[in-house]
Design a protein around this nucleic acid. Structure first.
Length: 327
DNA sequence: AAGCCGCCCAACCGCGATAAT
DNA sequence: CATTATCGCGGTTGGGCGGCT
């Protein structure tokens, strides 16, 4: 015999969560912490399967999540990482602790992919065709493992970054330069006002699921009443994704910083929390000294970030400019 | 005002990896 | 060691909403 079944498949409720269900779930997790999802529907009486509970918590209810309003900075990081890692949303999300993989995936599919496509189409008019052996479209799935980036992938990546950078820099009637070094022309293109300005989540507009007010109220009590100092959720404290190489793994009482891309099955490492979380003033270099050695991709990202993020942060984006300059 | 259409995103589904028995 | 459930991930779906005609 293996394990007992997680939940009855009969009578399991599906569809949008109600405020009542959210309250039940949040208060249960407040008391017991996340994890052991199997027991959640059983102990709470929620007519949801454990999977649904976990999803609701990780994608929506857990503290520290920012929703909507992806900043230029974040867009750049997502594009950057997607070109490196492919559609490994969880890995990408590990660099944006305040964002869920689902959120990033949705944002990519609905916004960034189109934007990139558009940019690449524009670039294709002027750029030479890619090398025949190149696999720019192919996700570089093994990059994280090997740490190796071939020239074309870098190429692709730089184009993507440049597209975003220039796009935002010249938002609204814009002039975007192709970053391809072999292309000397500067392309003048016309752009509408950035759609990204409008993406912002229309949190208050619709169904309950989109109501941040409700959630804030729920979590307000949660944050106030629950966590003792040593288990307090810390996600929001990390002010720069590039400083948080690793993942805020788990939530609530289990929350811990796990260095590296792989967050699966990692035990919490509270010892690291102090060194990372509470050093908002820490520089990138200082951080490197504090941390376990970075894998190649992380080092590369940091190097890249030094140049590119600094550039992006000049874009007078409110959020970006409010971040401390680390580099 | 009503109908249509496209977009957005929360939630579901299916699968592989891992853990428990 | 085999079996079975759980967990976590990526892909997909479908309901709701807003814009357009």
């Amino acid at each position: 015999m293996g394990r007992p079944p997680c939940c009855d498949k009969v009578g399991v409720k599906k569809g949008p969560w109600t405020p009542e269900e959210d309250i039940i779930l949040v208060s249960y997790i407040q008391e017991h912490g996340p994890g052991n999802w199997r027991s959640v529907p059983i102990n709470t009486g929620l007519m949801r399967c454990s999977k649904s509970c976990r999803l609701r918590w990780t994608n929506y209810l857990r503290p520290g999540i920012r929703r909507g309003n992806f900043t230029t900075h974040e867009e750049g990081i997502i594009v950057h990482l997607q070109s490196l890692l492919g559609n490994r949303w969880a890995a990408i999300a590990s660099y944006l602790p305040q964002r869920t993989d689902n959120d990033i995936k949705n944002y990519w599919n609905t916004h960034l992919k189109k934007k990139l496509k558009k940019q690449q189409a524009m670039g294709a008019i002027f750029a030479p065709p890619p090398p025949p052996s190149a696999s720019s479209v192919e996700p570089a799935a093994n990059l994280a493992d090997t740490g190796h980036l071939d020239q074309h992938q870098l190429y692709h990546h730089h184009d993507a970054m440049a597209a975003f950078s220039s796009n935002d820099r010249y938002n609204g009637g814009a002039r975007a330069a192709c970053s391809n070094p072999e292309v000397t022309q500067t392309t003048t293109i016309t752009m509408r006002r950035s759609p990204f300005a409008d993406v912002a989540t229309d949190c208050s507009s619709s169904s309950y699921a989109s109501s941040m007010d409700n959630i804030s109220r729920l979590l307000g009590g949660f944050m106030k009443s629950s966590p003792p100092d040593d288990v307090k959720p810390n996600i929001a404290v990390v002010s720069d994704p590039f400083l948080s190489f690793g993942r805020m793994s788990g939530t609530g009482a289990d929350l811990a910083f796990v260095p590296g891309i792989q967050q699966q099955q990692q035990p919490p490492q509270p010892a690291l929390m102090g060194s990372i979380i509470y050093h908002e003033e820490t520089t990138g270099q200082q951080l490197l000294q504090h941390q376990a050695p970075l894998c190649s991709i992380e080092k590369w990202l940091l190097d890249e970030a030094t140049e590119q993020v600094a550039d992006l942060m000049d874009l007078s984006d409110g959020y970006c400019s409010s971040l401390p300059m680390m580099y």
